[in-house]
Every structure is written in C-alpha cells, then in structure tokens.
Design a protein around this nucleic acid. Structure first.
Lengths: 162, 162
DNA sequence: CAGATTTCAGACTCTTTTGTCCAAAATAAG
DNA sequence: CTTATTTTGGACAAAAGAGTCTGAAATCTG
C-alpha cells in the first residue's frame, strides 16, 4: 500500500509534530526513537523538506521542523510528497485513462473506495495524529508500550495521563 | 497498491471468465490479447492454479480454465491468492498488532477504508467483472477501444451491442 | 511411435526499492 | 579560529519485484 519511505516519513513527521517543545529535532533522535535507519530516514526527510513540508537546519541545535502549523499538513500531503498522488487517482488495474468513458471492470467500485480514501487523507491533519500519538496507548512503532510511555520526552498534549 | 503480478492475474482471469466458449484457454492467447509477457503470465497463472482458483491442462487444446463457477470467485480471492490478504488486514503504517488496544494514530480512519475495501472485494465476483468486460466501452488493457470490440472472439454476454 | 503443442520448473537478467556508508558544507559554541 | 554537531549529497550494496529464456513433462494428432 504505502512504501517504506512513506511510512517512515509519516511516522517521523508525527513524531516531530508531537514533540512541540523542541524547535529543531535532530534526525538522529527521531531515528533512534522510532527505530528507523538513520541514513535512510535522512533521505526521506530531505524529500519532505524539498517538498516544502519541513524546514531543516544544519549544525548543533539543528534538525528538522514542520514548515507549517500541524493543522495545515494533512496525511494526503505527506503521502503525496513521498509516494505521489497516484494512489488517489489511479485505476486498480493500472489502466491509463480509466474513467467513466472507458472504465475497467472494477472501475465504479474502486473509485468509491479511492474517493473515500482521498477525503479521509485530506481531512486527517498532522495535529490530529500527533494528539493521538500523545495518548497513552497509541504507538508509532512496532513496539508495544503496554501502559508505559514509549517516548518520555514527549508530553501528552490532549490531557492523556502518563 | 496491487503488484503487477496481481493485476495481470486479475486481468487474465477476467479474460478467461469472459471467454466462456473455450474450455481451456491457452496462456499464449491470453498473453497476446492482453499484451502481457507470456512467460511472466505463465508464472502468475501457475500460482492461481496452485491456489485452486484455476485448472490447467497440458498439451494441444490445453490451457487454463476456472476451477469454480465465475459466481464463486471474488476479487478478494484473486488478490489474496497472489498478493496475499495483508491489504485487507494490515495497518497503514505497517505496525504489527495495530488494533483497538494499541492503535496507530491513523488506525480508526484506515480501518474504515480497509473494511469497505474488504466488503467490496468480497462482493465483486468474477462473473460481474466478466460481464462488464463484455460491454462495449469497458476494457481490460491500456488500449482504448473507441467503439471497436477489442476481443472479437469474445461475445458480449449481457446484451451489449457490437 | 513421431511430432507438435502447451504447461511446469528453474535459472538468469534487469530494475526498483531498501538500506548502508562516507565525505563535504553549514552552523553553534568555546 | 577550532572543534563538535548536524544536514546535504552521492556512491554503493542488498533485497525484492518484474521480465526473459531454456529445457523437461504431459498430452493431442496423425
């Protein structure tokens, strides 16, 4: 569904958004907390800065930060910046120009799903996901936390208890 | 979204289902009409026969045929046989065990989409898609037909005009 | 039986994705 | 100015996906 690059990018961006206290968050910190290869994540985040979703800063106290308020970045933006928007537009069978005029046999059904996916991705903001990530039982990585805070450095935003 | 193998498998199966007159359809015929590499398609269809969705027969007059009536094979079966069912079950961020207890930040939204996709894929039968494929303006490949029948050997099933 | 047809099985190549590594450029702090 | 930190950029390797090819096994036809 989503590429590894895209998944890492989404996870990292949520992490940065949830970590509102730091101005610039070093990629090394993100990588170690999310258990992602540092060098690989570096490239992914470079792409997000090139797409204008993040700002970066070199040197000590440097790192990456959101280029816009978390309310103005959506899941759609993140996916589009890394994997491209083809998931939201393409035919299930990959047929170019599949539409009402010359559809594939599954066109109408797939279109329905695709449109709902698009609506949801456009509505789901980074702020919403970051708030979720601050809740006790919600996680960003494959590690279960079981009532422990996985990222002690991140304070719960939405009144979730630690 | 779907792998090339899976797309080819779906296209080929629809073709076979739409081609109800032939008992066994040679893979070479499917490959040439759908413009798919013969050897590659061979492997994909082999997988479908191993999964019990198709029967195959060697030698002259041989080829592949549906192992079950087209009403009893769904899009879900085809995808599951080639790409596996992970699309229908997995977390958007790929987190193992992502569920109500320990969800990812996008869990509830993605679950909604995923469930609808599952319902649609389970309901969409090969018969329905094959009927569609028999209609004049519907196509299985990236070639537009523009009011020409792309596969003259296949007769329209559902009263579509040629 | 001989020859033609077709699937089966495996080896092989090419491309894309994923992951690793290293040196250079920018910046902060002493 | 020097050193440590951090992103940038590119090269490189490993793994997976996509596609090609060859020979063997099965089966029909004559």
């Amino acid at each position: 569904m989503l590429s590894k690059s895209c998944i890492y990018g989404i996870q990292a961006t949520i992490y940065v958004a949830a970590n509102a206290s730091q101005e610039f968050v070093p990629i090394s910190q993100i990588a170690s907390e999310l258990k992602i290869s540092f060098h690989f994540l570096t490239k992914v985040l470079q792409q997000l800065t090139q797409e204008g979703l993040m700002n970066s800063y070199r040197g000590p106290k440097g790192g990456v930060a959101l280029a816009k308020p978390a309310t103005e970045i959506t899941l759609y933006d993140l996916i589009g910046a890394i994997d491209g928007t083809s998931i939201f537009t393409e035919c299930m069978l990959g047929l170019p120009g599949c539409g009402i005029a010359e559809p594939c046999p599954a066109h109408e059904h797939w279109t329905k799903i695709r449109n709902e996916l698009t609506v949801i991705a456009r509505r789901l903001t980074l702020e919403t996901m970051a708030k979720k990530a601050g809740e006790l039982n919600v996680r960003l990585t494959d590690e279960f936390r079981y009532a422990q805070r996985l990222f002690p450095s991140i304070k719960p935003i939405n009144g979730a208890q630690a």
